[in-house]
Nucleic acid binder design. Structure first.
Lengths: 156, 156
DNA sequence: GTTTTCGCTGGACACCCTGCCCAGTCGACG
DNA sequence: CGTCGACTGGGCAGGGTGTCCAGCGAAAAC
């Protein structure tokens, strides 16, 4: 896809102040409204901006504990395990990876005690051979994208 | 905080169709517009909804490779390492964890070859003793929150 | 049992943003 | 030099937003 400096500024602006509309954004960026609209359409059509869904904080929902679990899967059971994990609400994301484990998933729980329940539910399944869990203590860099956007805009 | 069924439906609705406004949402949910506005204000004030920033896809930006790196840190160098990693745009998030490693970070890169450059930059720093990297192959469950929201709404 | 409180309803108002269109300009490219 | 693409600045109708308000019903407090 590729984005230019104006795209980068637009994305950054929207990330900082999502409530502003197209008109206000055009004023801030010093371009015509139609330009902002065209850029937004292009970014969304190109998949760079997937959407503007609400960003929900699991902690505020009562799930302050985050953990990452590395799973080792029995040969050929991958898709079963995927389907199983997809049914667990506390599994926020799941990746298949190279390296020591076969899968890596992000979990949340109501407490450390509750995490045990979640892990039992995750691991209590045929195809999972072994699981090792790392509990998150701090989150010095929360999920971010702006620095990468600026990098991508610089590289053109 | 705690959310009820209406909050849950509202969040789900906004996640599915972010473009609809307060008025349209109130029609879909079958409640008065003021109610939706009040709920939204409360959810945002309570931190449940952090915002409506654009969701940017790193792959579409030219960074299709994702990896997770487990870092082992030299005693007492934690904050230096944090500061260092915060300056690397390809580091999308960073957690300090219990377990084998001391930190876990999510990386993206332009290619497998480029990942080497990123890792070199990440690891090329005093306080990092050891790093082990897992490259993401598939992402069967992309970062999601709706199932958890529904769970939280059920539990009241 | 009454009274208070609180959240929801339905309606009102002015404001202005959105989606859409268009003609004109400018720079890059063939 | 002509064409194409992108940006500008403007206009238009429609409707959504922010913000009030009075009324109401249920749950909680007294």
């Amino acid at each position: 896809m590729g984005i230019d400096a104006l795209d980068g500024r637009l994305i950054t602006l929207l990330a900082q102040e999502p409530r502003i509309g197209v008109l206000e954004a055009s004023r801030r960026l010093g371009v015509a409204r139609g330009t902002v609209q065209a850029r937004l359409d292009r970014l969304q059509a190109g998949g760079v901006i997937r959407g503007f869904g609400p960003q929900v904080d699991p902690a505020a929902l009562g799930y302050p504990v985050t953990a990452f679990a590395t799973l080792e899967i029995r040969q050929g059971q991958g898709s079963d395990v995927r389907a199983h994990l997809a049914t667990v609400p506390e599994v926020l994301e799941l990746h298949t990876t190279t390296g020591e484990g076969d899968m890596l998933c992000r979990l949340v729980a109501r407490s450390n005690a509750d995490l045990q329940r979640v892990i039992d539910r995750v691991v209590g399944f045929e195809g999972i051979v072994r699981a090792s869990t790392a509990i998150v203590m701090e989150n010095p860099v929360p999920l971010r994208i702006i620095p990468l956007v600026e990098q991508a805009a610089r590289d053109e």
